[in-house]
Nucleic acid binder design. Structure first.
Lengths: 196, 196
DNA sequence: CCAGTCATGTAAGATGTTACATGATTCC
DNA sequence: GGAATCATGTAACATCTTACATGACTGG
């Protein structure tokens, strides 16, 4: 059900059309919970059907076309708070990189090395992305955050920004840790190469 | 397709019945790739149908009953090596704990605190589990690893153990990092509490 | 002979991925 | 007038979870 909470969180910053929600998703909450358009549109409709969102047709263009704008209903805000009240259900471990590394004896050393190198490249990219997000938060240049802050009492703004920084800071740390792990793996391959 | 690779890895240590595979799964490869019995049994059959495993009926008990024992076929071993040759497809981020933390402004401080405390408890448990696995590897007391090592040339044994240690070491590091992150979150809540 | 565990699943549903589809509008 | 992007999906498939089912065997 996390997609639902991600969407509530996104729309809690203010109403959005389905299209705008899809676009802004990727550059805000999508950094911690990825989803594709093909999931977002149907989920928005389902949430509206269940009363978490209210929908309104707004004009689009000059020729009488419309698009759907969604807002969080009182029930939706309550669902957001209820979610925060519930303990988080931890999902069982399912880590493809660790799985592969545990059975590197089936790889030849060159392939194992390449795995680890692309692991490093991947998480360097993740780290840089998350660091960018943090910079955008600090500079208040992120559109979704701007909408969020504009409807918030000044005393609350600090909290909101600090929580987001904290969350994305976790992503940075995790990326650093994965990079350090993969480097240890490369060192191990070197060591075993010398032995064999 | 990782379940398939996890099962190939498990059975590469030697033949197992479906039931034994299900049991041993949890105490070996299941530490990096979780799966339930209801997934394992059907997947073993599918893998046999596709020629990755060979099945053999072995007697069970004294009254003529049988059970199915699976072994990795040559095609299965090739699939295992092919998997190690392919680059890993990184899945998009989907992190419920980070998602929740990014929107802690919707939680009251007590609930946010409880989230972080159970985050710490969860990863302390993960860390201890992974540390146990590492100890079992070092002491060669893990049954699946014993089967694996017993069919391996002595020069290769070191490699196998070091790779597994390395993989589970990553789980330990990740757990430590999550614990440190959550502690920073608790400190942040304290700080914001003082401000508000 | 009865409890436990061995042995093997099925069925329904939730969630997510991949690939494709289509028309409207705006900007150059 | 054509390209880009706005707007909104659907269909098929894969994967995983939850809940349930059932009979055989073993040890006390």
């Amino acid at each position: 059900m996390s997609l639902r909470h991600a969407l509530l969180a996104l729309l809690s910053a203010g109403p959005l059309t389905g299209y705008d929600a899809s676009r802004q998703f990727g550059s805000s909450v999508g950094h911690v919970w990825h989803a594709l358009d093909s999931q977002i549109y149907p989920e928005l409709r389902k949430m509206q059907a269940e009363g978490l969102l209210t929908a309104r047709q707004v004009p689009w263009g000059t020729k009488g076309a419309t698009k759907t704008e969604y807002s969080v209903s009182p029930e939706g805000y309550e669902a957001l708070r209820a979610w925060q009240r519930e303990p988080l259900a931890y999902v069982p471990v399912r880590n493809p990189a660790r799985l592969k590394a545990a059975y590197f004896e089936w790889a030849d050393p060159g392939d194992a090395r390449r795995q680890l190198e692309s692991h490093i490249a991947h998480f360097e990219h993740q780290r840089d992305l998350a660091q960018q997000v943090i910079d955008e938060i600090r500079s208040e240049s992120q559109p979704t955050l701007q909408r969020r802050l504009s409807t918030t009492a000044p005393q609350q703004r600090e909290r909101i920004m600090r929580f987001k920084e904290f969350a994305h800071g976790g992503t940075v740390d995790q990326a650093e840790q994965e990079i350090a792990w993969a480097r240890r793996g490369l060192a191990l391959l070197n060591e075993l190469g010398d032995l064999g």
